[in-house]
Design a protein around this nucleic acid. Structure first.
Lengths: 223, 223
DNA sequence: ACCTGAACACCGTTCAAGT
DNA sequence: ACCTGAACACCGTTCAAGT
């Protein structure tokens, strides 16, 4: 009758931005981005939908805030003893795991320019890392963006079937069957590689490209 | 009174999947993905919205089709004389330009598993390229996906302000001002690199990461 | 200052009815 | 077989009204 039900039938909801963000996070995790409605968030708070507009001007502003909050607490202070390649790899993995752990997190962050404090901190750390690695300003800016784009983009593609509602296993096995069932004459590689294209842990697949990207940046640094 | 007005007030609309796809493409280019409504497409065809459901089961199925159609005609037959690095670079650039040329094209293609014929052809060509380059099946599958993810992801981030409604110049100059105006003590790199972070042609920035990725893959091939 | 009631202008989708 | 009329259950958002 106290804090557990207070959320749904509390006497004085006493809204606030953090409270709304928290409720929105729960709805996002449960229903995904398409299910993240103002009305749904209000219901989660035991409040009427119009109330939220006192604290956020639009739904989009709330999602912007969510996008920044999604990467809150990500470690940005790396031991300076670790070399830049390890730091970059570990940091990108950290971001990868965070985006993978919340439903539609990559979708929330993609397609919008996030300028919240957590994102700024994350960007600053990335740039710092590349500068310490010896890249000039332009290269550091471009390289940092490239790694970020690759990371978010990868999660976006990996989570695509989940966002659509299907389970990951079902979607992948369906895709594997589709590839394997194509005409061998016109799609020899898709048929032959139906396995590699759809198997393997997401993080392993992610790391392959990440390591290639880091190798390429390292090469650019030395030449 | 003939073909120009026929679209809006034609006597016998005589719908078909290609006709609907064409109209949807025009609406997408004009109003973006958020403005791509069944009612809007129907209006573009001079038809009632319910009519479209005879030809497509859901809006999502239509957008799936659009996603595949967006990369129709992209060259997949490369001169075998060109080395794989040049082919890969040119091909990715081609995709980059196509996705950049239609509003929200990257958004339409991201977050969904496209299995249309144009996409299959494109995938097959990518895999073939990496196999001819000497990568094994797993590496070819992973590398191909990495390059694709990077390309679509890059366009997605570049087009973010456009999708939100703002002009690209306005959004970038706003971002530049925001970076430059941060506290130097906590965000030294963002302040110092406000220029490089927001200037430069999109394609130049895209090519930096693409070339690093290709370099890294080439390195993986030789070791 | 903060929340509610009630409405507005939209959506995707369905389905009986027309032709 | 193919299209329309009319409705259903939703949206985000606004705003006068309550407290």
């Amino acid at each position: 009758m106290t804090s557990s039900t207070q959320r749904r039938r509390g006497r004085k909801p006493r809204l606030s931005q953090p409270l709304i963000v928290g409720a929105a996070m729960r709805v996002l995790a449960r229903d995904g981005l398409d299910g993240l409605t103002i009305r749904g968030i209000a219901a989660e708070l035991g409040v009427k939908s119009a109330s939220l507009y006192w604290h956020f001007p639009t739904r989009d502003a709330l999602v912007d805030r969510l996008a920044d909050e999604l990467i809150a607490g990500l470690p940005t202070e790396r031991a300076t003893t670790a070399d830049w390649r390890t730091s970059l790899r570990d940091g990108s993995c950290e971001l990868f795991r965070r985006l993978t752990s919340v439903r539609d997190a990559a979708r929330v962050r993609s397609g919008r320019l996030v300028t919240g404090p957590n994102t700024l901190r994350w960007m600053e750390a990335g740039l710092d890392l590349f500068r310490r690695a010896g890249l000039n300003e332009v290269a550091a800016a471009y390289a940092s963006h490239a790694v970020h784009v690759y990371t978010v983009g990868f999660v976006l593609f990996t989570a695509a079937p989940l966002s659509a509602g299907a389970s990951r296993e079902a979607a992948l096995s369906a895709a594997r069957g589709a590839f394997a069932g194509l005409e061998r004459a016109t799609y020899p590689n898709l048929v032959a590689m139906a396995g590699p294209l759809t198997e393997g842990a997401p993080e392993t697949r992610f790391l392959y490209g990440l390591d290639r990207l880091i190798d390429g940046i390292a090469l650019d640094r030395t030449t």
